[in-house]
Design a protein around this nucleic acid. Structure first.
Lengths: 212, 212
DNA sequence: GTCTATGTTGACAACTCAGTCAACAAAAAA
DNA sequence: TTTTTTGTTGACTGAGTTGTCAACATAGAC
């Protein structure tokens, strides 16, 4: 059996540790030394694998984002209709495991650095682009092209805003409130759409099964 | 004539300088030394007036926020109907002068520090509370209490999300796109409301007059 | 047993930054 | 003119951080 490369094992291990510290202390509060100490190795060793701090945090953010991406994929895989795909994106973003203040902190830290760090900008752009294309692809089966772009944008803007709130207020917005707000928005745009309501119910159920 | 206190002159001067650096370089990139150099004085002098860096940045953020608050007040003063007050809040937040990537950067920097700095948390909370109360007060004249709360929240969440986008993407969201998104949202919630449309037109005109 | 590739680390250099302190300058009051 | 108050600063301390380098450890190859 082909033993897993030690390099990739270490890389993932340190990325995970860095990501956890990032959630707790933000970008400026996360030092290479702390990551090394928590991981139980020397700072030199961490630097050996990543070269510098920016690369380390970049990998840490990719690690954290991979989770969310996986959540979206898991729901999309079980979706059969356009509306189910729309709700997959929404429910994944407010999943019980991932819609937490800590993750929101890490994400806001990233966003604050984006204007000054190209590497972080790429990650952020990728996240937004993926969300947009998932939403537009699904919505364009439901309405015209221009409307799908507009609705996709408004949904993702609301998601951003809601994540921000959850990170800011100590008693931030709950998963239920967040979902209710998006639902009210969609309900105003597509009132009484049977397909939509059925899709919402089904994806909500799948969500409950995946995270009991 | 009573000469203005030198202390308050310096305080405002340094706050403004700090705020400009904050827009340009974010919280971690803004050092006491840089503020002092740009203002043309010694670091010791800046520290003399503010005590420590956190206080300095706190005042800087208050300084920056006072501008936006003034914009809201200017429009509210000229509003006569509930819908005009709602649109005052919206248009002020996307005013030509203030809805800029640089201001968005400064604001995101602040938000990223909120979870770790009580002083910044207070400022952020005050901003949100003021926006909420302005919106709810106006909306409660239009619909029932529960709906006003919900709509006020959705509007302010969208405003947050749009500001975030404008800070993130180099070619961020334009003022026009932002206003169009909010408008589509309100139009879906209150379709064809004559009072609303008239109010929107009037506040837009006042905005044009104030910022030609 | 020796050699080599791989993994690991302690010590250290270089730098940045917040905050302190004692002293200096100048204007106002006496 | 002398004294006091107000404003200002250079020099320094001390903590914290990134990144380098030469050396050490170890397991498998020869």
């Amino acid at each position: 059996m082909p033993r897993k490369n030690l390099k990739s094992v270490r890389t993932e291990e340190y990325s995970r540790t860095a990501f956890e510290l990032l959630c707790e202390h933000g970008v400026s509060g996360t030092t290479v030394d702390k990551v090394a100490t928590v991981a139980g190795v020397s700072k030199t060793n961490v630097l050996h694998y990543f070269g510098n701090k920016t690369k380390l945090l970049e990998m840490a953010l990719r690690y954290g984002n991979a989770d969310l991406a996986g959540e979206v994929r898991a729901l999309l895989r079980r979706s059969h209709t356009p509306w189910e795909r729309v709700y997959s994106v929404i429910f994944a973003n407010f999943s019980k495991q991932y819609f937490t203040p800590k993750l929101a902190h890490a994400w806001m830290s990233l966003c604050a650095e984006v204007p000054h760090q190209k590497a972080y900008q790429r990650i952020q752009t990728a996240i937004h682009r993926r969300m947009r294309s998932n939403l537009v692809d699904a919505l364009s089966k439901i309405t015209d092209g221009e409307t799908s772009e507009r609705v996709a944008l408004s949904i993702s803007v609301m998601i951003d805003g809601l994540w921000m709130r959850s990170g800011l207020q100590s008693e931030g917005i709950s998963r239920e409130t967040a979902l209710a707000l998006i639902e009210a928005h969609l309900n105003a745009l597509f009132p009484g759409d049977k397909d939509r309501l059925a899709a919402r119910k089904r994806i909500a159920e799948i969500c409950d099964i995946l995270h009991p």
